[in-house]
Design a protein around this nucleic acid. Structure first.
Lengths: 382, 382
DNA sequence: GACAGTTACATCAGGCATGAAGTAAGTAGG
DNA sequence: CCTACTTACTTCATGCCTGATGTAACTGTC
């Protein structure tokens, strides 16, 4: 391993958000020796990513040299591909989101065509947005397992026809830039991890139309043997009875707690909803059936997560995706976890929605490319 | 981190078991560059742990210098503390078990007294066994969560009165040697990990009187935030209904799938069993109630493990503890896993009993100390 | 028996992280 | 203004791992 994963990125993030403003601060916050921080900082300064901007005030000793991020260095594009839409954003090199939009994108077509349409969309958005500096890279989150090494889609349950498709190469043909791809839940986890304290173990559950999850173990994104780690959607839950699931089994969590399942359930009950978003809107409007359904989904998810939390003993459980927009959903998950977990496991466990809400995937996708970009910048700038 | 965890140990293991006999072999098997292996090997040779013993046969080039472990260098003692007994063994520096016995040990007394009694027992066994070389250290596995950093017992559900007890220090007062302590399931996992290929992710479940599990993620023992990672015994399973559990909750896996639960169940049915061992013996004798009960325990465990396997995507699931002695139990776990997991997760998953059966904990405890011992030996021998 | 080809191992230089020591630049108190 | 103490940052020597290169030793062939 070259160095700490997301190390430089985290450093920049801390500087940009004024959690750390001097080299000493960074050493303290990162838990690294001052010498190491000094060297890395110097490298980033000569790469033109960081700049020294004046001096801070003294507290009885030498004044710290204030660091700040050179935002003009450039920006990256990040995209979170959903079932029908794609969310596109630009992030500066500190990982700040500069700009977001959502555009329609139909992924149920020939992958190459979808990629081409996507590329056009990104270029349109980029032309409108006029972000500072040059484009440094592009990161894309997909709603399904991705083989990150090969840059291909592994098991596209929500993307028929994409099995084994070499997305990364396809994207590279449209953009002459570093391209990084990964699963959406993984990237949400990565984004949260970079923004939080280092070395933690956290679990991000993306509950949208489907259910996915991403896992960061002691500061490192864990993808598992087959790249499908974090799958909890096909765990059997008693409440799901014998409902058939797309995976071929019966009684899976996904058949009761996913957005798709809620749509189906509510339609059975005569509530006219066509999408996960509509379910959430209906629940927000106070429709009792919808609210109850969302709450029940949270309880089911919480039951399953209890196993995982007892087992994996993470520092944080973070909820993302459309369902996490509902306070009732979050509360239900919390309740189930506190009820079913060992006190020792939940004692200092943080259970919350993802810090960046619907943009969580973008932050992660940005982080993934930025990491590559900095590695490259430092390697060449020497 | 100083270097690869259990790196030297694994190297010695490979040499001792003739999976690798030359430096080249080691490089291949360990996936390390030859230069690195060369350096480490040299260090171990000058520390007196490895020796060169003649040359191998050529296959068209220079003959390899054959390596072998200098068994006379010494040995360590390892112990696996159970509810009523302690299993004690000696391991040579290659991690081979030289000697095993089981002695009674009542842990339901004052911790300091138990440690004293234990120390006496170890000395007795050591006097009888007369192992080659000098004693290099002692490793002990405890049946409950251990704070490895502090060397204390965390949550002694099976060891009343031990909460927070500083076992490691207590042991060090009796033995003037390096002492290492950890949870028993963790150590079984460590032992299996060292003996297997490097960098794997594996889960060891110890199903004995209680249920515990140990987790090795990409070659590293993962202990979790509170040091209680791997707890699956208090997951709610439907079949457990409302049975109260020692944890204060209801319907836990432990109330139906642990050895203690089987004893209780069978007694209700009028079968006269007093311990987990007797349950297993009764089942082995073909008693239908006992066999059914063991099999059912396996199914319940398998259901829970399915969640964990889907989620964590390990390379291996290994079963230890008394229940794993039953073929029916292992088969039941396998069946449940294959039925409930995603094909992608079980496709290359190995499900088996622990390689070392009842000695698994000893191998791990040995590995834990040996790692310290070698680090020390190399640091000083330079 | 010289030469090519192979295999095994050693050595070295470079990269990276880091503990320790050194330097720089302030405050506070007499 | 001089001394003592703080704080901030640099520099250096060291240790570890590793890719590249060099050396040793053997087989087989013409």
């Amino acid at each position: 391993m070259a160095q700490d994963p997301a190390g430089l990125l985290r450093l920049l993030w801390l500087v940009a958000h004024e959690h750390a403003v001097s080299r000493m601060d960074l050493a303290r916050v990162l838990g690294l020796p001052q010498s190491t921080v000094s060297v890395r900082t110097q490298a980033l300064i000569s790469a033109g990513v960081l700049v020294e901007a004046g001096e801070g005030s003294s507290a009885g000793g030498r004044r710290p040299k204030l660091l700040s991020v050179h935002a003009g260095f450039g920006h990256v594009w990040a995209a979170d591909v959903g079932s029908r839409h794609v969310r596109i954003g630009a992030l500066d090199i500190a990982g700040n989101l500069l700009h977001v939009t959502e555009r329609p994108l139909d992924i149920n077509r020939e992958p190459a065509q979808v990629v081409a349409a996507f590329a056009d969309t990104v270029r349109e958005v980029a032309a409108e947005a006029r972000c500072p500096g040059r484009q440094l890279g592009i990161g894309v989150a997909f709603p399904g397992p991705v083989d990150v090494g090969a840059g291909t889609i592994t098991l596209p349950s929500r993307m028929p026809g994409w099995r084994g498709f070499a997305v990364r190469d396809a994207l590279r043909e449209h953009f002459d830039l570093p391209v990084a791809v990964d699963n959406d839940a993984n990237l949400q986890a990565l984004g949260e991890s970079v923004a939080g304290p280092p070395g933690r173990t956290l679990l991000v559950v993306k509950a949208g139309t489907g259910i996915g999850s991403g896992l960061v173990v002691t500061g490192r994104l864990y993808r598992g043997r087959a790249g499908v780690a974090g799958d909890i959607s096909h765990v059997r839950v008693p409440a799901a009875g014998d409902r058939p699931c797309t995976c071929g089994n019966r009684g899976c969590l996904e058949t009761v707690a996913s957005g798709a399942a809620l749509v189906a359930q509510l339609r059975e009950q005569g509530v006219d909803v066509g999408s996960t978003a509509q379910v959430m809107a209906t629940a927000e409007d106070g429709h009792p059936d919808a609210t109850t359904a969302v709450r029940r989904a949270g309880l089911q998810l919480g039951e399953v997560l209890a196993t995982v939390v007892n087992f994996g003993n993470p520092d944080e459980v973070l909820l993302g995706g459309a369902l996490s927009g509902s306070e009732a959903f979050v509360a239900a998950v919390r309740g189930a976890l506190y009820e079913r977990c060992l006190p020792l496991a939940t004692r200092e466990l943080r259970i919350d929605r993802v810090r960046f809400g619907p943009d969580a995937g973008l932050y992660g996708a940005g982080a993934l490319v930025l990491d590559e970009v900095f590695d490259e910048a430092i390697r060449s700038g020497r």
